[in-house]
Design a protein around this nucleic acid. Structure first.
Lengths: 196, 196, 196, 196
DNA sequence: GCATAATCGAGACGGTACGTCCCGTCTTCTG
DNA sequence: CAGAAGACGGGACGTACCGTCTCGATTATGC
């Protein structure tokens, strides 16, 4: 596949790698994405600048690797008994992730950067962060019989994720105080999609 | 308020102001937001650097002023005969704005910057770009009797805007080829919101 | 000539210029030429790095400007009564300059750099540091009648300067303890040159 | 002395050693001394970096070993019939060596480095490159009876070598076109030295 | 003939200077 | 007296070498 880079010579230092990922995590919280620099990351990690560049091209790539695993975990919640509960839980997870979490801050920074850098856009797009969790909710709904088997998943995923995503990204206040209140409406929307 | 800044001396050059706004517009297209610099804007406008800083603090502010009027115009479409048509037209406008338009590129860049700069977040938040157009669609629905008077507008606006916004910002492919296909589902969702 | 660079805009800061020249002088003594860096010069002078590069391309150019005036002064001694005394004094000046003086250290460093950088070679060659003083010694000898008017000056200058230069550059011990002892022999050599 | 370094283990590779010396020779000509790097030498020689460092500390040391043998050879010319011819031939050899030869370029580079690195100065001083050849010329003069037995050799060597050395190092044009023209004057100077 | 040991090429490591770019401020001349 | 021009101190950029280190592989000696 390509995973066998370099067979001779000194092997890559796992210690340096984790020090860099930790440094980028810490610095994002401490100084914010705008003030995050490759120089700063290297110094914080106690690592040569070249060592960072050797394995990642931009601060976006480092941040992506540092944050994406946590991000997926935060969005994955245990199954609920009903579709409505499942959707409510998912919406809450999305809201919490975007507005209150560490990994979510990293994701928003990356998505922001993606708006003016196609390279980062490709990187972030490759994660398709919300796809797995939202698809799981829908598939559980189908297997429970709460949704017809022909439900168009891609469209339904966008319907489930969109509103909370929009509120999180624009920083708008959540109407009604909690995004859980959207659940019945979005379930209705998904059923309507399936009916077409 | 403070509209009478400077009563003696040479008055502010309107010519310089518009040259700067045009320059920022052009440069955004030509080099992208990341490579947009205050230095570059001043040079392109044929203007001293200080003159730019005198009226705007950051490139985000210049861009905001240059793009926001166009943005509102692009999102405002003539009323349609039915709620369903109105929603379809609105969705199409949002999609076209975010993915295909000049002003939309500026908006996405600003929203991106807002993810890592609270100052810009405040600026972009103050525009609440989608609020006017989406509220208008809903109010027309109410006045036509297609929606109950008690429909919760803020929540409904997020439901209408969210899916297209999500697809536009993440660069995902639109399921079914057009966002118009979401209209029936979103109308159903809005009605469900109103029913609670 | 070209001395009128920049007629508009902020003028060059004389304060920065002298701070840089002093810094380079100090650093040469403190850390030596090899450890002299543009970065170090700028920091020592309390000046931006770009400000150094704006007016000089290399550390050699800065050092040249900082040292060359002093160098000429050190090599210029008051006229003596006889050619022999004049030559002795000149030889002593050359020796002292190359082995014991501040400006001489700078000159040796530059001449060293000139051996592997043609640009520096041109710069140092343009100074022709020993030409003025050695020619003056010879012309006084001619005007006193101690040397014939037809004495070939260029060759005589090389004969007068060469031995002390050779000893100074190679770091060899001076035979007899003082380079003054070479004077009678070199006067004889110059007379022989003139006789050809 | 210390010639028995390592008695067990893999012996030093003579092949690597000569590859390094050849590489340094080639690179000096191709890129010049300033752009000569230990990294470049190792890569050109097809050798690990450590292998170079194991046997030489600096690029100056490698260059010294690569060039010094050739240098001595170039300065050693067959004896001539008379002192004047011997001196002329020597002067020509010095000039050709410094300005036209491969080994001379290396010597000039090393002498240049010696001006700002005492370690290199010691190394180059230890060679005393011109001592052997110039002393030979003088001793032949004495044995032929053209010079008195008491001629002070060290001073005479500096007188013979200095002018051509000065012209070669400063890159000045040779007055009269050839250094051979200096020979009678320098012979006169040496005789005057002996007479004191 | 098998362990020991020093060499080899390769290449990653922590550092540091390079020369460039832009930041936001300042100081001059020009209209 | 605003505006253009452009120099100022500062600091990050991405690159190149530095000299050291850690690999696996190779090639001698000595038990």
């Amino acid at each position: 596949m390509g995973e066998d880079r370099q067979r001779v010579g000194r092997p890559r230092s796992e210690q340096a790698r984790t020090a860099i990922l930790h440094a980028v995590d810490d610095l994002l919280v401490e100084v914010g994405y705008a003030a995050l620099t490759m120089k700063g990351i290297a110094e914080r990690a106690g690592v040569g600048r070249q060592t960072v560049y050797r394995w990642w091209s931009t601060k976006a790539e480092v941040l992506f690797e540092a944050a994406i695993t946590d991000a997926v975990e935060e969005l994955t919640k245990p199954p609920q008994a009903t579709l409505l509960d499942d959707v409510s839980t998912y919406l809450e997870a999305v809201e919490g992730f975007l507005t209150g979490s560490h990994a979510g801050t990293a994701y928003r920074a990356l998505l922001g950067e993606a708006q003016h850098d196609p390279e980062v856009a490709r990187l972030v797009g490759s994660a398709a962060l919300f796809d797995g969790p939202s698809r799981a909710v829908l598939e559980r709904g189908i297997s429970r019989g709460e949704l017809p088997p022909g439900t168009p998943l891609d469209a339904a995923m966008a319907v489930l994720t969109g509103p909370a995503f929009y509120l999180g990204l624009t920083g708008a206040a959540v109407p009604g105080g909690s995004v859980r209140a959207f659940a019945p409406a979005l379930v209705a929307a998904v059923r309507e999609l399936a009916a077409d």
